[in-house]
Amino acid sequence: MPATSAHASKEFRSPMCLIAFAIGQNPRFPLVVAANRDEFFRRPTAAMDWWQADSGQHLLAGRDLASGGTWLAISANGQVAAVTNVREGSPETGRSSRGELPVRALAEPASVLGAALNSEPDRYAGFNLVSLTERGGWYYSNRDAHPGRQLFRGSFGLSNHLLQTPWPKLLRLRKAFATVVEAASHRTEDLHNQLLPLLQDTSPAPDAMLPDTGVGIETERFLSSPFIVGSDYGTRATTIVTLDAQGEARVTEQSWGPNAQPLEKRQFSWQR
């Protein structure tokens, strides 16, 4: 096992993720989302599938079998919600699992959810939450000085700090992602196939460009590539979601094992 992988696994306890999304950047595909979920391989997880939340809503999502909930979910009408943690040097736990948040975002209006989160700022450990449709989106972080922002047209990136924080891996993915989305033709399958390799980029960032989030330089290096390769911890799922102008929702998810071993690939499509 690489030394960085062993060192990193001792330095932090919560999952990392990377998300790029585009709203209104291609008339054929008004919403495109591309995401990596990074986690310990020992953490029990169910692959993406349809399931019913406690609210009664049917959603498409993977499931965290340790504490419940999910990191990214899609509703039958094509709304997408995803959560990332905020990387902080000292471990922190909240009273509730952050995996509840995407499920709540699909069930509750943003104004209602935002008010509830404002009233209990410490209920969850540090998080970023996005809720997206082809018309726009909503972003909330309990580490933001002014939480709760409406999102409109544009290409965005989110990792383990606030939205659009210019970490090297976020900048690299967002730039390549935006170029592919803007140039996409009418074949949804082609777009998915073009986006998947962007999320498999294992290029580390130069030390001079690394953020200092309190986890140490070796761990910063280990976490600096868009796709993380390790034996204990690494990228476990790569997910692409597209909504097209004709009402089709399509989802591709590639699962990964230790040391980037490709596992199951699942694809879903339906008419909204």
Score class of each variant (00 low, 15 high):
Asp190Trp: 14
Lys169Ser: 09
Pro121Glu: 03
His58Asp: 14
Ser185Leu: 14
Ala107Pro: 02
Leu132Asp: 02
Gly137Asp: 11
Val181Lys: 11
Trp167Ile: 01
Asn118Ile: 10
Ser141Glu: 11
Pro91Leu: 01
His161Trp: 10
Arg143Ser: 00
Arg149Thr: 08
His186Cys: 14
Lys175Phe: 15
Thr93Ala: 12
Gly89Phe: 00
Tyr139Ser: 05
Ala110Tyr: 05
Ser185Thr: 14
Ser131Gly: 09
His58Pro: 01
Ala53Asp: 11
Leu132Lys: 00
Ala115Ile: 09
Ala76Asp: 10
Gly62Asp: 08
Arg172Trp: 11
Gly126Trp: 00
Ser159Gln: 06
Ser75Lys: 01
Ser67Pro: 06
Ser97Val: 01
Ala110Gly: 06
Tyr124Lys: 03
Arg143His: 02
Gln164Ser: 14
Gln52Leu: 12
Ala183Met: 12
Ala176Leu: 09
His58Ile: 06
Ser97Glu: 08
Glu134Phe: 00
Ser159Glu: 05
Gly126Thr: 02
Ala178Glu: 15
Ala116Trp: 12
Arg153Asp: 15
Ala61Cys: 04
Glu182Phe: 11
Val130Phe: 08
Ala73Phe: 04
Ala82Val: 04
Ser96Val: 06
Ala61Tyr: 08
Gly148Ser: 11
Glu134Lys: 10
Leu173Asn: 04
Asp144Gln: 12
Ser55Phe: 06
Leu106Ile: 03
Pro102Cys: 03
Phe127Met: 01
Ala81Asn: 06
Gln57Pro: 00
Ala53His: 10
Ala176Arg: 12
Pro147Thr: 06
Glu92Arg: 01
Phe156Ala: 07
Glu134Asn: 07
Ala82Leu: 04
Leu59Cys: 09
Thr84Ile: 02
